[in-house]
Amino acid sequence: MNKKIAIIDYGMGNLRSVSKAVEFCGAQYDIITESAQIKNYTSIILPGVGAFEPAIKILKEKKLDIAIKEHILNKKMFLGICLGFQLLFSKSYEDGLHQGLNIVEGTVEKFVPKRNERLIIPHMGWNKIYISKTNKTVKEMYNGIKDENYVYFVHSYFCKPIKKEYIATTTNHSIDFCSSIAIDNVWGCQFHPEKSSTVGLQLLKNFVSKCEGQNGSN
């Protein structure tokens, strides 16, 4: 079993910043493109920038969807970032209605301004995270990170999990939305830790050490 972190390259967005940040956090990584490779790794990151539909289409075509689900079912570590986080959900309303990986029950919906509200979309820039007090895994994910720290977002759609206990953090942009989830081995964040300076790097370090812990107990 390969103890490096596998970063999945499915052609959506720039992997370089994610891989460089992971490297900066002291971990080794491989960039993988094929579904058959996933079973060789104990930890994977699914990054992604772009639209939902082409992304899920590529994942399905390459059978990466099945491999990712197996990986998660086997209780191995997973981190989804931005689009890679949204893809975990059941369905998205971005440009129509599209089925997601359905690992987390819920929807991906567009920000809509309230009446007479001038809402800037995309939600782009640094915003605060409010850390959940009820989610257990959140302590590992947000170790060393403070409530109301700022992280960097770029998105027009947000995730809405049905089970509120999955929510690790919320963020306000017209509404309070779920900005990250933590479900044992499944971590996902709407913001970009790889672009969130020291706070983001701390989250990635937490992921790396959780991955190492998992490898140690194998």
């Binding site: 910043s17 460089k20 940040a21 900066f24 960097y152 770029v154 300076s197």
Partner: peptide, 8 residues
Amino acid sequence: TAEQVFIP
């Protein structure tokens, strides 16, 4: 720069 500075 992108290797060392983790902001947009």
